[in-house]
Design a binder for these strands. Structure first.
Length: 802
RNA sequence: GCCGCUAUGGCGGAACUGGCAGACGCAAGGGACUUAAAAUCCCUCGGUGGAAACACUGUACCGGUUCGAUUCCGGUUAGCGGCACCA
């Protein structure tokens, strides 16, 4: 009796859809459960075998929750704006929308063939004007609260995409997407003040259940540090303010450095006797790309500002000021006090420029290398601080700075504001208008959505303007404020905009009065379980937490954090252990797998492949093993016998399996859950028969993993009323998970010497007595004295002899 | 350099809270069925010695704690991910 997945799988997919079994209900009185996967970007390549891994994992959770009586929301949509569609459009003179919609249709058909229990009635797409109306609406709220602003700034510019990038999108000095060189350009950009939320984005990680590595990465990225700002007097008269995390080393500051972009260079121009050399250095620094700047990091460079010097506020000594690109304009005050004895970079610089190195923390040899240890040292050469530990000195000096007005304690973050404009067509238009008289004016909310106009050319311009800039009819408008002539913003939003709030739209996707109703938000928020890739930790995950917190402050959402629990899946590699790619020729197409083995086998295999959180190589032999399991399950119907109920000799096997599967599906251990089902299969086939009740339990346990074959089994064996998907999750009895007799191990001095079969509840005394009576053990302990007896209930006896 | 993580058979991987290392699956070898093959079923399967019972040994490496360590502690090595001149 061969199992034919090609007729069974489409049959059930159709039935589920017709009956709407997976539709979530708003306003239900049942407890809710919201499971979420990252909505895909519908690329031209179609579905990858990596996609079904997280989809199946949360599908198992969602299906199990439904069987447990929850009203489950498990939605999907499309993150459909994005560069590939625009590039395709440029190349083929087609509209990016057509291309994207074709891809969506393809993705949808592929995903539906996997039997994932998504609620398709809530499908959304970020390119839908009814959707991006609310993306624009949120932007307007940010603007109204002063969290969106336009600023001339030095931005990352991808030379190939001809577009600015957020800091998060620059990886090793090149464009994250295309790998091309990234250079600096001064441009006027819309910015979002994510820095305003830096502290809360760290603090509220305590409220959520995320993997430690995700929390650590976000904290790292936000980069909080504590220290002090200190004012140094200069011979030019101006105070030069620096930020330092080591105010304790202030007595050791022997020179200062400002970044090449620091405004004081301009301010002091007429006082500098070597202005030409300084200008030359600034020009060189400006020309360097991020990549070059990182490469050059090995060798320190710089120029002294001749004609101006600073005064160390504690030692009152005059110290030189340098300009060097090892100081970044964007962090702290763009200027530092250099303490070569206790900072590696300052030490290198001091060595190169023959500057004095003064030890202020004892413990190392500062002529050999910088001593940066904060734990062991004691302060020296430091006036009021002498004899204190570093920690004490930090506290003492900060008090002193505040008393004398020289400085104050200060917290700094590495996190930068979010560059929000893109010089591209295929994104949400930014709903802002520029009026000569009124400046930037937001579009009235009643005019949303501001839709994308049809253009003829999608080619971005070399001067850095969006293709929309050519659309004079669209660009020229009237000022909503004064009614005079005005121009629209022609930059669009980044792809991260639509994905920063999509999970809220699923709660109430057809609402035209609000992004979601209060009732829907109160019922569904927060997301109970959100699974997604590690690569989004400092991008999407951080951005969406920021937007959600902003909405929380507006009173628009009910909880401080959007996602109660976050997990991450590992990638699926090619059979050769390499990342799948066309050029390596190791790509597995999910359509082929579904066609040959069926969706159930594919799902089981992707869950059985290994630790869910780790990468795992595809194995075509491995998937055959899962197909074998599916067929063995199918053949259980031939073992059906006339007996009733769950029979005593297999009862504990069933209860153990229910327990194991129930628990493991909650902790991402899908591989061992399936192993438990395989073990149960071995027990049943060994026994050679199965009752209807036993088969019903088996079928329900397997249902979340392999939904199609289990529905078919449920139906043809008449295992109960309705569909398998409409039943209740099997319950186990802890007492019945235990066997009547257990095998305990008898060790002598920690080495296994015998095994005993004893009744499960045996007492310590009986176990020890039986162990000592055992033939083998008697021999081992004869003539020796037992100095210690250890008994671990139901597991082992250990006799320590001398 | 900093932060986080990992290391177990031929392979993917199990092992609760310190208690039988290698569950489950794959591959391999042997056998049954078959004219043959596929499929299916049965047996073996970390290493060394042994016909076998069994013994010794074994979870990257060195050391420690413990009756007992894959698990805890200290150190080393290798690999993965993130950040990186952030003062």
């Amino acid at each position: 009796m061969k199992y034919d997945h090609k007729t069974v799988e489409p049959k059930w997919q159709k039935k589920w859809e017709e009956k709407g079994v997976f539709y979530a209900e708003n306003g239900s009185r049942k407890p809710k459960y919201y499971a979420l996967i990252e909505f895909p970007y519908p690329s031209g390549q179609g579905l990858h075998v990596g996609h079904p891994r997280p989809y199946t994992a949360l599908d198992i959770v969602a299906r199990k929750r439904r069987l447990q009586g929850y009203n489950v929301l498990y939605p999907i949509g499309w993150d459909a704006f994005g560069l590939p569609a625009e590039n395709y459009a440029i190349k083929n003179h087609a509209h990016p929308r057509e291309f994207t919609e074709k891809n969506i249709a393809h993705f949808k058909q592929q995903i539906q063939s996997l039997g994932i229990s998504f609620d398709w009635s809530r499908e959304i797409s970020t390119i839908d004007p009814d959707y991006y109306k609310w993306t624009q609406w949120i932007f307007l709220q940010l603007y109204k609260k002063g969290l969106a602003y336009k600023k001339e700034m030095n931005v990352n510019w991808c030379t190939s995409c001809k577009c600015v990038l957020a800091n998060e999108e620059v990886v090793n000095g090149v464009c994250e997407r295309c790998g091309s060189e990234v250079v600096h350009k001064v441009k006027s950009q819309w910015m979002l003040k994510i820095t305003e939320y830096a502290q809360r984005l760290i603090d509220d990680l305590d409220l959520v259940d995320y993997p430690e590595r995700v929390k650590a990465q976000q904290k790292n990225w936000i980069g909080r540090s504590t220290g002090a700002e200190v004012d140094f007097d200069t011979t030019a008269g101006d105070k030069l303010t620096v930020y330092t995390t080591r105010p304790d080393t202030l007595y050791g500051a022997t020179y200062m450095v400002i970044s090449p972009e620091h405004p004081f260079v301009e301010k002091w121009a007429d006082k500098l006797t070597n202005l030409a050399a300084v200008r030359e250095y600034q020009d060189q620094a400006a020309k360097k790309s991020d990549f070059e700047r990182t490469e050059m990091a090995k060798e320190k460079t710089g120029v002294r500002l001749e004609g101006v010097s600073a005064i160390n506020p504690l030692t009152k000594k005059e110290i030189p000021i340098f300009v060097s690109d090892y100081v970044l304009v964007s962090y702290g005050t763009g200027a530092i006090m250099a303490v070569p004895a206790h900072d590696t970079r300052d030490w290198e610089f001091a060595r190169k420029f023959h500057l004095p190195i003064i030890e202020v923390v004892k413990g190392g040899n500062v002529q050999e290398e910088a001593f940066t240890d904060c734990e062991t040292g004691v302060m020296v050469n430091s006036g009021i601080l002498d004899g204190l530990t570093v920690e004490e000195a930090k506290k003492r000096i900060t008090e002193h700075l505040e008393e004398t007005g020289i400085g104050h304690a200060k917290v700094n973050f590495k996190l930068r504001d979010w560059v929000f404009s893109r010089q591209r067509y295929w994104g949400e238009p930014i709903p802002m208008v520029y009026c000569e008289k009124c400046g930037w004016v937001p579009l009235p909310e009643s005019e949303l959505p501001l839709t994308l106009p049809e253009v003829e050319s999608y080619e971005p311009t070399d001067n850095g303007e969006s293709p929309l800039a050519h659309m004079t009819d669209w660009v020229n408008t009237t000022c909503p404020h004064c009614g005079g002539p005005a121009k629209r913003e022609t930059d669009t939003m980044p792809q991260w905009a639509g994905s920063s709030w999509y999970f809220l739209r699923y709660m109430d996707p057809h609402n035209d009065k609000a992004f979601a109703s209060k009732e829907a938000l109160d019922y569904w928020a927060p997301v109970d379980w959100y699974n997604g890739g590690m690569e989004h930790t400092t991008l999407h995950l951080l951005y969406s937490r920021f937007w959600y917190k902003f909405l929380y402050d507006l009173g628009a959402v009910p909880t401080p954090e959007p996602y109660a629990k976050r997990t991450s899946h590992g990638m699926i590699l090619g059979e050769d252990g390499q990342k799948m790619s066309k050029s390596r020729g190791n790509v597995i197409n999910p359509d082929d797998v579904v066609d040959e083995y069926g969706a159930d086998t594919m799902r089981l295999y992707e869950m059985f492949i290994g630790d869910f959180e780790k990468t795992a190589p595809w194995s075509s032999a491995g998937i055959k093993g899962c197909r074998r399991f599916v067929e063995r399950f199918w053949n259980l119907q031939s073992l059906l016998c006339g007996e009733k109920g769950i029979r005593p000799d297999v009862e504990s096997a069933f209860h153990k399996a229910i327990k194991k599967v129930s628990e493991d599906t909650e902790t991402l251990k899908f591989n061992t859950a399936i192993a438990a089902l395989m073990t149960l299969m071995n027990v049943v086939t060994e026994k050679g028969s199965i009752t209807k009740e036993e088969l019903a339990v088996f079928t329900l346990l397997l249902n979340p993993f392999a939904p199609h074959i289990t529905e078919e089994m449920w139906e043809i064996c008449s295992l109960g009323d309705g569909m398998a998907a409409e039943q209740s999750w099997p319950a186990y009895d802890e007492a019945k998970c235990k066997e009547d007799t257990v095998e305990i191990v008898v060790q002598v001095c920690g080495k296994v010497r015998a095994r005993l079969n004893v009744p499960a509840g045996i007492s310590k005394e009986d176990a020890l007595r039986l162990a000592k009576e055992e033939e083998k053990i008697r021999g081992e302990i004869a003539g020796k004295s037992v100095v210690k007896e250890i008994y671990v209930p139901g597991k082992l006896v250990n006799l320590v002899v001398k």
